[in-house]
Each structure stands twice: as C-alpha cells, then as structure tokens.
Design a protein around this nucleic acid. Structure first.
Length: 398
RNA sequence: CGGGCUGUAGUGUAACGGUAGCACGAGACGUUUGGGACGUUUUAGUCCCGGUUCAAAUCCGGGCAGCCCGACCA
C-alpha cells in the first residue's frame, strides 16, 4: 500500500486523556479511531493486523476440527431467558424490547443445535465464529483492552460425555497455546473461576503486562498460574516454588459448560443404549481486539509499535528518499510493503512514521544507497542498518 | 454504579470575568532534502441548555462526553 493513498495520517502528539500505551500508539499510528469510550473503528492498518490475528486463529481452530459459522448480533431475548440470563446487566437493550445486542452465544447455538443433534452419531462437533460482541461495561478502559463493543472468536463444543469433552478441552488448550505464541504473546495457562460455572478446570490465558487488570499468582519455575480471584496460595502446588503476584490481561479462556445450557434449552441425544441424555458442552473464547491491544502493550518502544512478523500490517516499510524514487517504484511490492512514496515529506518525518507504524523491516532507497547499488535494510527495534545489494533483496525478504 | 478530574480549530495546548492566542496539521508560493527543515501566506475553535453580569471559554445550575480510582466483569 502506498502511503500517498492511505487516507489515515499519523500524529506526533499522543491523544489527550489517553493513558494506556495501546490506545496512544494505535491512535497515533492511525490503526484505530476511537468513536466512543470502548468503541473503536479499525482503520486500514489496524484492520490488516486484525485480519492476521483472525487468520491465525482460524487455522488453529480448523486444525482441531472447529467449523466456522456466523451467528446474529441481534438476538431474541427468548434465547437468553431460557437460561435465565435475560436480565444480565452487561447486555445492551435495543429499541425493540424483544431483542438484545448479543454479548455471548451459548444459548442461541445450543437452541439451534437441537435441529441437527439426535443421536450420539451426531456428536461430537465444535462450531466457532468471529463476531462483534456487545457488553455494557460499567467502565470501558485501557484502550482496546476493555471495550463495550469488541471482536471475539467464540467456539462451542458439543459432546456425548464428560470424557470426550475433556479430551477436546485439552486439544483446544493446546491450540490456544499455539495461537498466542504465533501472535508473539507469552500467555500463561491460568487456573480460574468461570463466572457462573464450576471453579474447577476453567482456564484463562494470561499475558503479563502492567496494563492488565487481572492479578495472577505465577510460579517462576514451572509457570503454573492461578487467578487471585480464587486463590491466595503462597507456593506452587506443582513444584513448591514460591508464587509471584503479577498483573496480567486475559486474552482468552476455555471452560466447561457441562449440561447447563443443554438442560436449559433441552438439547438431548440418544445414546447407544437408546437412552436420552443431555449434551455436554464447552466454550472457548479469544478477544481479538484485546489481543491486538495486548500485543502493542508488550511490543513497543518510545518511538512506536514493534509488530511481530506474524501480525505486522506489512512485512516491510519501503521509504523512497531523493534520488531513490525510480528504484523504489521498481522494488515496491503492494502485497508485502507499505510504501512511503510521499514526495513532499522530509526524511525525518518518514523515518518517524516508519518507527511509529512498526513494520518489522525498514527499507530505504536513496541516492546514497544507490551509489552502492543497494538498499538500506534496518530491522525495527534494532539500532544498526546495513546496505544490501538490490539483487539480494528479494531473497532476504523471504 | 459510587468518587475524583477534565471538556477551547483536524491534533496538542494558552487566555485575571473584558480583543479567543500559539504550535503541529491541512492549502498556496518559494527555498530545502538521511531523523518530524525554513520563510511568506491562507484555513479552522470555546461540548449542549439555562442562569448571574454592562460583559462568560472563565462564575453558578442542569445535561452530555472523556479520562482516572473503586465496585462490577462469561
């Protein structure tokens, strides 16, 4: 993409009233636009990052047999009423009393599953979606970390019995590890309480950051962790090491639903012995926008964002300086490069923008580099740069 | 939902109750050209409603909005 064609613009100043790093940098770089507290538009650069996160999650969910679908955001209250959650205060009302802006989709999917689930032959299955969730948070805060409208991947699994569920639960937990690792996040598998549900076997994926609003007790030796909401242990039950309290942000969670929803919405199947049983369910969520914000919290410096290669809006940021314009046009690859072709911007301004936007590699073509038949290559976050022969650039970007 | 703080051009900020100013951005012209360059010039603003006052960005009341602390949080 050419910067001359990108309609967003960076700003030199942090937005007033914005304290969290992710909100400051994402807004300054033109990745997001805050429309209201906790409500953001993903501008082109931010959207590209979001799509990369989505692609990683999609791959890993498909790999554990998840099937993608898309449910409505506007949900008939009857679904929530069936499980006794219609009055929950995090919901947004709409102009029609019968409809609520959806904040979770257990009920609606459980209700729909009834049409397709008759026998144990129909089980197990897992379905997921990427969807905008609405939560009437009493206090939206910390940029993308706690929004009133946010993008979430939610998956629900349906099983004939607890054992089958537990096997799957472990598989999804492993998939989540891969997802966060691929997103450049060190996420700790943390024992937690799942709201209305059992305190056993519910887990959160927590990333350590000062911007986080959760507190976990973490074992520095074996990485076992537990949310302080449900524990005040002093030492690790796995290895005995003393636990350390850390601030963290929950980027994902997985938890058992048991038969809560299958009973509430009467989702039953016939087992091999011909008996009717309630389906055993699990639920698995990842907040994409929260992942986006967390990555910025973790990967930045005083000049701007430093995107992991897997999520960067573009692999490289190509800058044309005087004398290098023609060569830059030849090198420009629209698929992988953000190309600063603006003729009226000073070198310093282009460098500052490149640092702020944070693509992994910065490429500069100028009279100076062409005197060496080369292009300057600098990694974001590194101090040194080097001149690479033009003929070797393509290989280097692999 | 309690508490605190704050609302001024696109952005960031000034202005004792008395002419709304500065910087950045954006536009024009010229000079520049490897770390946010310079000159000239143009552009654009007091969140909303009411009150006090000769006079309100400023004081008062009420809204609305934003941020922070707490409570809450599938």
């Amino acid at each position: 993409m050419r910067l001359s064609k990108l309609f967003t613009r960076t700003t030199r100043e942090n937005p007033a009233d914005e304290v969290s790093v992710n909100a400051q940098l994402l807004e300054r770089g033109g990745f997001v636009y805050k429309n209201s507290a906790g409500i953001y538009t993903y501008m082109p650069l931010g959207f590209r990052v979001l799509e990369k996160i989505k692609a990683i999650i999609r791959e890993e969910m498909n790999a554990v047999g998840g099937t993608e679908m898309l449910m409505p955001a506007l949900i008939d209250k009857k679904y929530y009423e069936a499980a006794g959650r219609a009055d929950i205060k995090v919901g947004f009302k709409t102009g029609d009393d019968n409809f609520i802006l959806g904040w979770s989709h257990e009920e609606i999917l459980t209700a729909m599953a009834g049409r397709y689930t008759s026998s144990y032959h129909d089980l197990p299955f897992a379905a997921y979606q990427f969807q905008t969730k609405f939560r009437n948070e009493a206090r939206a805060k910390s940029g993308l970390l706690r929004g009133r409208e946010f993008l979430m991947k939610d998956m629900y699994s349906f099983h004939a019995d607890e054992g089958d569920f537990l096997d799957y639960y472990a598989k999804v937990g492993e998939a989540y590890r891969k997802i966060f690792e691929r997103c450049g996040l060190k996420a700790y598998y943390t024992v937690a309480a799942g709201g209305d549900f059992t305190t056993s076997n519910t887990h959160e994926f927590q990333v350590l950051t000062k911007a986080g609003e959760d507190l976990i007790l973490l074992c520095p030796k074996c990485s076992w962790a537990i949310n302080t909401e449900i524990a005040d242990e002093k030492s690790c039950p796995k290895c005995g090491e003393e636990l350390v309290e850390e601030k963290s942000i929950e980027v994902g969670n997985i938890f058992p639903l048991g038969t809560k929803y299958s009973e509430a919405l009467n989702l039953q199947f016939t087992d091999a012995a011909g008996e009717k049983k309630h389906v055993v369910m699990g639920c698995y969520g990842i907040g994409l926008s929260r992942v986006l914000g967390t990555v910025v919290e973790v990967h930045h410096d005083d000049r701007g964002m430093i995107w992991p290669r897997t999520l960067a809006p573009f692999r490289a940021h190509l800058i044309a300086l005087p004398g290098g314009e023609q060569e830059a046009e030849k090198l420009y690859d629209p698929g992988s490069m953000l190309y600063d072709d603006r003729p009226d911007k000073s070198a310093g301004e282009k460098f500052a923008d490149a640092d702020l936007i944070g693509c992994p590699i910065r490429l500069v073509v100028s009279k100076k580099t062409l005197e060496h038949q080369g292009i300057e290559v600098k990694k974001r976050g590194a101090e040194e740069s080097k001149i690479v022969p033009l003929t070797e650039l393509a290989a280097m970007l692999q």
